[in-house]
Simulated assay, not measured.
Amino acid sequence: MPHGKHSTIYSTREIYNLLRVHHQRVPWHKEVWFSKGIPRHKFLSWLFVLDRCPTKDRMMEWGFATDPMCILCNSGLESRDHLYFSCSYTWDIWYSVAGRSGFSSPRVWNEILRHLQKLNTPTHTRLLVLLAWQASIYCIWAERNARLHRSRFRPPSAIVKEIHTIVKLRIASIRIDDPHLASVLFQAWVS
């Protein structure tokens, strides 16, 4: 009896909408939860937008004794805002990737998010920028963790190459459902 009315048809969607808590949408939801994105990249981006990942500044707040210096550049205290993209190491990566996707990016996290929200470009360009942004977040976090936990160090050029490959593979997977969009994306990415 949804809404107190007898119904002979069961709808999972209707029951779900009755049970879930309705909140006002956040202004950045389209930049994180866009269609055609890579699910694990979207999830990690969401955690970073909320500042919920275990960066060293947060771990210190929790009482863990840890070296607060950024393991990527060794010149700043590790925080979300430092990692994305005040750190010289990550800025080299993002500057290269953003340029390739046609995005003139600021260097400060909140400004980047605001610029992405206001990005008024064709659909394929916006999709390319968001794919590149999320792939950068994912690959930089993976590099940070590889250095921290496995003592594996790679130069920024290797991360840029990995991001380039990830975006190309994602474009290739889009070709199945939308060959025209994939073609436009591929031409924009490799040009």
Results as ranks from 00 to 15, higher is better:
46 W>M: 04
135 A>I: 03
31 E>S: 14
172 A>V: 11
75 S>W: 11
126 R>F: 02
24 Q>W: 08
156 P>Q: 01
38 I>L: 09
149 H>Y: 08
174 I>T: 10
128 L>W: 00
182 A>I: 03
184 V>F: 01
111 E>C: 11
167 V>N: 00
167 V>C: 01
126 R>G: 03
48 F>Q: 15
46 W>L: 06
79 S>G: 13
172 A>S: 12
114 R>K: 13
46 W>N: 03
127 L>G: 06
115 H>I: 02
159 I>N: 01
155 P>S: 11
119 L>W: 03
131 L>Q: 06
129 V>H: 00
99 G>D: 06
88 S>D: 10
12 T>F: 05
183 S>A: 12
139 C>F: 01
131 L>C: 08
104 S>E: 03
70 C>R: 00
66 T>P: 09
167 V>P: 02
123 T>G: 08
180 H>A: 12
176 I>K: 15
50 L>R: 15
145 N>G: 04
107 R>T: 03
70 C>K: 04
183 S>C: 14
181 L>F: 07
140 I>W: 01
73 C>A: 06
32 V>C: 08
107 R>F: 00
40 R>N: 11
186 F>V: 12
48 F>L: 15
70 C>A: 07
162 E>K: 15
177 D>S: 14
73 C>N: 11
100 R>S: 01
36 K>G: 00
67 D>T: 09
119 L>M: 12
